[in-house]
């Protein structure tokens, strides 16, 4: 389902260059739940951003379901991100001027589906399924961090993505909220059939994955 080959990513800083990802090779099967663990600065988030089509690698290729995503032009890559990938960030990532239900519906609307009623219905259903049935009209500023993260999960699932990427989704949440978020991600993987790639520090959460890969200094640890 996912094949990363010879991936490299370098960041230029004021004091020189930092090689964030070095020669990474990764294969993930369809429907698999893979956890990526490693210390801070080991390159996990950079790898996820490249896989998610958000950050262009300096070298290497990423093939998702037969599509080399970084060979696509801007519009095609945007469409691919929208239709095939769901991304949950490690920070609050909702548009502050939209209600919860509009934040969830936005990716479906960007997909240009004509069925607005169907989109609204699905967005409501997803919000209900993550326990936010009474928060449709709430703005991000009116919700807790955990609730915002669950809205972000609902948004990531609105287009039924084949690949669900979660970059430390519970990083700034309390234990209970982190657990609730994980339950939603696991449900999407096990009941929805989405391939799940999770970056986490939490080894207990990683233990629930089908496979755990470790990163260190930008490379896959043996």
């Amino acid at each position: 389902m996912l094949a990363c080959r010879a991936l490299h990513k370098m960041y230029r800083t004021g004091s020189g260059s930092v090689e964030a990802v070095r020669n990474v090779e990764l294969d993930v099967a369809a429907g698999e739940f893979t956890a990526i663990v490693g210390r801070s600065g080991s390159g996990k988030s950079s790898l996820m951003a490249m896989i998610g089509g958000l950050s262009r690698p300096d070298a290497g290729s990423i093939v998702i379901d037969g599509t080399d995503i970084w060979s696509l032009d801007d519009d095609a890559l945007a469409r691919f991100r929208n239709e095939a990938i769901g991304y949950v960030f490690q920070f609050a990532s909702l548009l502050p001027t939209l209600r919860a239900i509009d934040n969830v519906a936005l990716p479906a609307l960007l997909r240009r589906r004509a069925d607005r009623a169907g989109i609204a219905e699905r967005a409501a259903s997803l919000l209900t399924s993550v326990g936010l049935g009474s928060h449709f009209d709430a703005y991000p500023s009116e919700m807790s961090a955990g609730e915002q993260r669950r809205v972000a999960i609902a948004r990531a699932l609105i287009n039924t993505p084949r690949l669900l990427l979660a970059d430390e989704p519970g990083s700034d949440l309390d234990e209970q909220s982190e657990r609730e978020v994980m339950i939603e991600l696991l449900r999407a993987n096990r009941e929805g059939g989405a391939t799940l790639l999770l970056v986490t520090h939490n080894l207990a959460l990683a233990a629930e994955a089908d496979r755990v890969v470790q990163m260190s200094d930008g490379a896959m640890a043996p």
């Binding site: 958000l54 801007d74 519009d75 945007a78 991100r81 502050p96 990716p107 287009n159």
Partner: peptide
């Protein structure tokens, strides 16, 4: 916010 919009599939012209 603009980055987020791009991340969820907004095109450049949008």
């Amino acid at each position: 916010e603009l980055g987020l919009l791009k991340a969820i599939g907004a095109r450049r012209r949008q």
